[in-house]
Design a protein around this nucleic acid. Sequence first.
DNA 1: GCCAACGTTGGC
DNA 2: GCCAACGTTGGC
Length: 146
Amino acid sequence: MKSEPAAFGIADLQRAPRHTAPWDGVRNYQARNFIREMRPGDLAFFYHSGCAQPGIAGIMEIAGAPRPDPTAFDPDADHYDPRSSPEKPRWYLVDVRFKRATARVITLSELREHRALAQMPLLRRGNRLSVMPVTAEQWRYIVSLE
DNA sequence: GCCAACGTTGGC
DNA sequence: GCCAACGTTGGC
């Protein structure tokens, strides 16, 4: 799950009340569909994008079932979408809980060096999705790099 | 700041 | 349903 650390980084999640925050603002159908497949207890990498050192910066846990994203209903919110309503929500979020920061940022360029990870959507050319699946095998491999 | 890649919009 | 125009993402 990607976020720009200048807006909301792994340190912000750690500081949040109960180390938990809603992952709101996703406005892409494919990313939304991945969110809707998430279940409490699932683990996720926190990926820092749009910064000097893009890469995996931490690990978090999905803290609740997917639910409608209330920021889509709020005309004053950044990602307001008048086509989404509480009666017929279009966008979803999950709450995420901080587990730990990685010992170091596992950078995008490092991830690209490993053929075992070449199939990850994150590493595919031109990819812009902000939420993507990781297989159990890829997960273990990445954690072992740390 | 640049630009490639991609998703979305809207006219037809 | 097609596709050009446009806006956004995100690495570099």
